[in-house]
Amino acid sequence: MYPENFRYTKEHEWVLVEAGIGTIGITDHAQQELGDIVYVDLPKVGAAVDQGKSLGSVESVKAVSDVYSPVSGEVIEVNHALSEAPEKLNQDPHGDAWLVKVRLTAPGEISNLLSAAEYQSYIGAEK
C-alpha cells in the first residue's frame, strides 16, 4: 500500500527523493479521509517551499485541507493535470496524482520524516 521508497509526514504527505528532486503528494489515507476531491490549489513554478509549511490545499465538497511540504526547496514542476481532473487524487494518490516536484535545498531534512512502516503504524494508531 505505502511504497517503501517514499518518506511520509504526520500530516499525510509523501515525498519521493531522486537525484536531489523531491516529488510530493498526499497519501492514500489522506484522500480517503477527505472523500471526493474537487479542487487542488498548487504553488507556481519557482515558488520556494519550506518543510512543514503549507504549499497549497486540496478541497472536498465540505472541507479544505492544507498540504504541508515534507521538504524545503524550489518548485520546479506542477501537476497541472489535477486542475482539470482533481478526481485523479482519489484514484492514484501515490502515482499519477503527485502534486509538485521540488529541488531540495536541505536534503538532510528527509531524516525527520517517517518511513512507510512508521507511517502505517501512525495512521493505525490515529484510528
Binding site: Y39, S60, V61, K62, A63, V64
Partner: peptide, 12 residues
C-alpha cells in the same frame, strides 16, 4: 464552491 465560505474555511 462552499469551501470559500466561513462555515468551512472559518478565519481563512
Amino acid at each position: 464552491l462552499s469551501t470559500r465560505e466561513q462555515h468551512i474555511r472559518r478565519e481563512k
